[in-house]
Design a protein around this nucleic acid. Structure first.
Length: 448
RNA sequence: GUGGCCAUGGUGUAAUGGUAACACAGAGGAUUGUGGUUCCUCUGAUACGGGUUCAAUUCCCGUUGGCCACCCCA
């Protein structure tokens, strides 16, 4: 709060030395406040996630925001952009190297190993909701602190799990009113990928003179990423480029086919994307991303993504355990929700308790408690003295009834109940106020 | 990390090399017990630092932050 300068003096002391205002503190880059006006959206997002996860049999897990840096270096991959240049890493005063989590899958797997969840009936189905941190340049739909909702199924290798996860992610968006398409691909086993990588390099190398500097670097470091390039030259080359599907071994191919069959069965719209490769190293076999269905080609903002990560547990020092999962970008979905025409209204309160005079204030305080205990939510502004100001607030809140308790009512043991729409009011026995209001609410509901 | 655009009360806008304006929001009020209209009063701003100048909110540089795109991802 800024310091208020004193208003007591009517005349301004013009000779007072002009004080320099201290530099205002701004949020750290890429961080933002989530304000009350946004919370109806957040609430809906969370409650929908919770309902869905309950229905599909997932249990909630929450892992620390801060983890040992090697967890991500080993899990997500040393040479990924996320780890290489986007992590908030630092050394604690105690000398530990830690990082703010850039994603949650590695943390969940760490917890699975640490708590011996392999002793539980498999698969273990977990869901999470929390902040992630990436030191990326902020942009539309991108923050350095952002929220992800995600589900993981650990300890099952069957393709049905992959399909079900894509289904849940798609279902989630649908329940929120967003039609989406699943872009899906398979990157097979690490061996398939290595072979494919070689084939890709062999294909692009003769053409490398036509590539941009950026893409030349990719060819050397991470050839699969070339497929993401938006350079029209590359787009043209891509048409003839080898596709990973052709390099999958029999069992990977079979796995992928089954995933697609299951998706067909439940009617999830998907699009095969032979060039979809995801930026986190732990993925194997199925990978997918979700995009709004209306979005044109080339849209960068995936609303969510996921896939299978059969090798991750082992990388983190656990027993080899197949697993798959997805994450939804909560901030992005909310921004789509806001951009769409659907309005999510904040929950409204039906009753305002207005008071007048010290006696009225005390009684109003008591009545408010009575309403609350009866499970009715009410608003008030007990600190205000003028009834006019309180009516004004009641009006703006859009309440249906205002209770008025003044000196006279205290003496009579009554309360005025004012119907704000009709502008009528009646005097009610203060002891029956809860019943009267409940009755009125039922009436109002039946009318509507 | 790279590039483009930008920065005026809480919000949205205006203006000017020489006193920063308006609307909304906020506080108070219009014969001290009643809202949605009206009217009055008040609060409150040139992001920060430096430079040019008699004079900078205005021009220049830097910092910080924002928006957008690239990279990458959710």
């Amino acid at each position: 709060m800024p310091l208020k300068k004193s208003n007591s003096a009517a005349k301004k002391p013009s000779d007072a030395p002009a004080k320099k205002a201290p530099q205002p503190i701004t949020p750290v880059r890429g961080m933002r406040d989530i304000l009350p006006a946004d919370f109806p959206y957040w609430r809906k997002m969370f409650e929908t996630a919770q309902g869905l996860c309950d229905a599909y049999g997932f249990d909630r897990i929450e892992t620390p925001v801060l983890e040992d840096t090697p967890l991500f270096v080993r899990g997500v991959g040393k040479q990924t952009d996320v780890v290489e240049k986007e992590m908030y890493s630092f050394e604690t005063p105690g000398g530990d190297k830690v990082s703010l989590r850039p994603e949650n899958t590695a943390g969940v797997c760490r917890a699975y190993i640490h708590h011996g969840m392999l002793n539980l009936p498999q698969p273990v189905k977990l869901w999470y909701w929390g902040q992630m941190f990436r030191h990326d340049r902020p942009q539309s739909g991108r923050y350095r602190q952002f929220w992800q909702y995600g589900c993981e199924i650990i300890g099952e290798e069957d393709a049905v799990v992959d399909a079900q996860l894509a289904l849940i992610a798609w279902r989630y968006l649908k329940d929120l009113g967003i039609e989406s398409t699943v872009r899906i691909n398979s990157i097979g086993t690490p061996e398939c990928r290595l072979n494919y990588r070689n084939a890709l390099v062999a294909y692009f190398r003769p053409k490398r003179s036509r590539l941009s500097e950026e893409d030349k670097k990719r060819l050397l470091k991470n050839p699969l990423r070339l497929l993401d390039s938006k350079d029209p030259v590359v787009a043209e080359m891509k048409v003839e480029a080898p596709q990973i599907v052709d390099w999958l071994d029999e069992s990977s191919k079979n796995h992928f086919m089954r995933v697609l069959e299951y998706l067909d069965e439940v009617g999830v719209p998907y699009q095969l994307d032979p060039f979809l490769v995801r930026g986190l190293d732990y993925y194997t076999q199925t990978v997918f991303e979700l995009y709004e269905a209306t979005e044109e080609e080339g849209s960068q903002n995936a609303l969510g993504g996921g896939g299978r990560y059969d090798g991750l547990m082992e990388l983190l020092g656990g027993r080899p355990t197949p697993a798959a999962g997805f994450a939804i970008g909560v901030d992005r979905v909310i921004s789509r929700l806001k951009a769409s025409s659907q309005n999510i209204e904040p929950k409204k309160v039906d009753v305002f308790v207005a008071q007048l005079g010290e006696g009225g204030r005390k009684k109003a305080l008591a009545i408010f408690e009575e309403l609350r205990e009866a499970g009715m939510s009410a608003s008030e502004n007990f600190a205000k003295n003028s009834i006019k100001a309180q009516m004004d607030i009641a009006n703006r809140l859009g309440v249906k009834w205002t209770l008025i308790v003044g000196q006279k009512e205290v003496l009579d043991g009554t309360v005025i109940v004012r119907d704000m729409d009709a502008g009528t009011q009646e005097i009610v026995d203060a002891r029956k106020i809860v019943q009267v209001l409940q009755k009125k609410m039922i009436q109002k509901e039946q009318e509507a």
